[in-house]
Amino acid sequence: MHRFANPARFLRLASAILPWSSALSALLIAAGLYFALFHSPADYQQGETVRIMYVHVPSAWLAMACYSTMALSSAVALIWKHPLADLVAKAASPIGAAFTFLCLVSGSLWGRPMWGTWWAWDARLTSMLILFFLYLGHMALINAFDDPSRGAKAAAILALAGFVNIPIIKFSVDWWNTLHQPASVSKFGMPSIDPAMLLPLLLMALGFTCFFVTVLLIRVRTEIIASKLRAIRMTQIHAVPVAVPVAE
């Protein structure tokens, strides 16, 4: 793991991965959207609105995966003082917030025709909203200190504390009797979803994951460059003009 602590090596690795991951995410999302919009059946109960699910479910998965990434890299940063893990956590939180927001908005758009309401205070929705606030708190805390490394450490502790919410989101549909339907893909035995619907869903999920990796790499790369710039500026500020002896 410490091999990747070297920013130069990370930058080389990132620029090797980036073209592939960005091409793959474009391809997968395009294919997923094609299957989702044209080549999958309408639901027998929900009709055409079921197609919202192909955006809603992957963004919910990614919102949680993103938080897990953030918590994991925060743990790595706190335990091993890994310099890049801090940057990964910082880079991941706005992406996760965006996915959570997308999940909440698409779910709300789906809920209006299906449940007859934009919002219901049930356990799944509420815990997802809490996740959104946790992301906001993380982003605010990182930028609240004059010294960036202090912000990173404080935010890492917060990310670990907030991780309790992830299992609550996952199991909220099992623990409480909610309006939100229980899991239909990730359960033991056969998933209770039609293969024609599962294909675009999985394509979209993979596409979203590639997209997440792409944006994360770009953001980490930007963070590395920004911290280099900061270091250069600091040395320029602190550099005392030295009187150069002039040869006569």
Partner: peptide, 27 residues
């Protein structure tokens, strides 16, 4: 207390504190 310790020395700590702590108070 966890929130209060996290915002020690932060800018606008009081407002930030409520943003950090309130989501965790909901349960």
């Amino acid at each position: 207390a966890m929130g209060a310790a996290l915002v020690l020395g932060a800018r606008r700590g009081g407002v930030l504190l409520s943003l950090l702590v309130l989501p965790l108070y909901i349960p």
